[in-house]
Amino acid sequence: MQSTSGRDLAVGIFVLGGLLAVAYLSVQVGGLSYAGPGGLTLVARFDEIGGLSPRAPVAISGVKVGQVTAITLDDDLRAEVRLDLDASLELPIDTSASIRTSGLLGDQFITLEPGGELDLLADGDEIDFTYSALNLEKLIGTLVHETDIGGSE
């Protein structure tokens, strides 16, 4: 009997440990529920989002305050990005959003720069000032064209 209950305990611990591992992968790593508070949804429109993808982090001064929840194309064929942010944030209405890259080849994320107005952005508002992703190829193309390295003109 002693050995049987010991085995039950071992199996119980094994099943519990396995389920905990699945739960850890789902919630913590898989982001089943975003660990932060969330609740403030803002919209930002960009001409070019580069490689930005859903679940990309949103940061203020480098501190993560939320994430991208959806990217769609609006009626004017611009990229409409939905951000889910910490509800306790007080962002002025002239806050700007820009798409940055971490490192040279790293993932893209959105960084917000709060402005100086007294009025605050409310849930569902749009961020009017946006700066698109830096497209390296486009930049080089422009540079070649402007400085006439191509030598065609």
Binding site: S26, Q28, V29, G30, G31, R55, A56, P57, D107
Partner: peptide, 9 residues
């Protein structure tokens, strides 16, 4: 953080 950002549920 790169692990958590890359993995989708």
């Amino acid at each position: 953080s790169s692990l958590e950002n890359a993995v989708d549920f």
